[in-house]
Write a protein that binds this DNA or RNA. Structure first.
Lengths: 152, 152
DNA sequence: CAGCATCCTTTTTGATACTG
DNA sequence: CAGTATCAAAAAGGATGCTG
């Protein structure tokens, strides 16, 4: 096999420094070393395929029933929906309410804690909205650069 | 996939309203219906176990080499690190620089686009920092409520 | 050092069937 | 309707060996 690097973004200059301690160039929200642990925990919780989506739909629609929520999220199996909701409930982000009627009626809504998280994610939503074009462009460029490096 | 139930709600329950169209109760960053699609795309991109962590470390340390980055993130295999970085690079969030020396020297840094995302995520960091106790408490309560309901 | 390739284990997810 | 239980498929992730 030949040169297997898919592509090179950039080549050159002799090495000098790396891992410079200089802080974040912008906003900077540098969490302390201990805080990082728990931040990671939270990320682990939320960083899955469905949690954010469910959170989003609950934010948008307020009080929603199980099946309806599944429709809103779209593409989720009831198994995953159940699991995701249980997790959110366990973390105090969602409140589950059972109405003792027949047939069963269960609805879900964000707790205030859940709402606060949703708010926190707002920034990311907005970012996605504002920058998705740039991402799409970057992706396309990456692909073409990639295939340029692949001698077919 | 969800099985498509015949009709959504053909029954009227003595329950108030559900799925109310009224907007988010608080901050409100309601993305338009079309925008949501791409927002979801972005979420799909970022919502995995490592991406945010890598982003975070790059935010904190600026320019970092491959191995070092792996150490900083902690617990990540080189396979996953490579994959995550490739993805970030493809999305234009990270720039990979190869220094043609022996032994190889490759470093990574955020692009300005990556920095903007990192900034957007700041809110989540802060949220985690502020609310992790509440989450921990909720979790504990959930567990005890749970086992109280389990007749062993 | 910075990967890629391959094999293998662990998780995750989905599709069904069944229940109160 | 709103789940649970179960089985099977798929994806993610890890370990190792091998390069330039």
């Amino acid at each position: 096999m030949f040169f297997t690097y898919p592509k090179e973004s950039d080549v050159a200059y002799p090495v000098q420094d790396e891992t410079r301690p200089s802080p974040a160039p912008q906003g900077d929200c540098a969490p302390g070393p201990e805080v990082e642990t728990l931040v990671r925990e939270m990320i682990g919780r939320v960083a899955d395929k469905w949690t954010m989506l469910v959170l989003e739909e609950l934010t948008e629609h307020g009080v929603v029933r199980f099946t309806r929520l599944g429709e809103l999220v779209g593409g989720i199996s009831q198994k995953m929906l159940t699991k995701t909701l249980r997790q959110l409930e366990a973390d105090g982000l969602v409140r589950r309410t059972v109405h003792p009627v027949i047939p069963p009626h269960v609805d879900y809504r964000l707790t205030s804690l859940g709402e606060s998280l949703s708010e926190a994610f707002c920034g990311v939503w907005i970012w996605a909205e504002q920058h998705h074009r740039e991402v799409a462009a970057a992706r396309q460029m990456f692909r073409s650069t990639e295939e340029a490096a692949t001698p077919d």
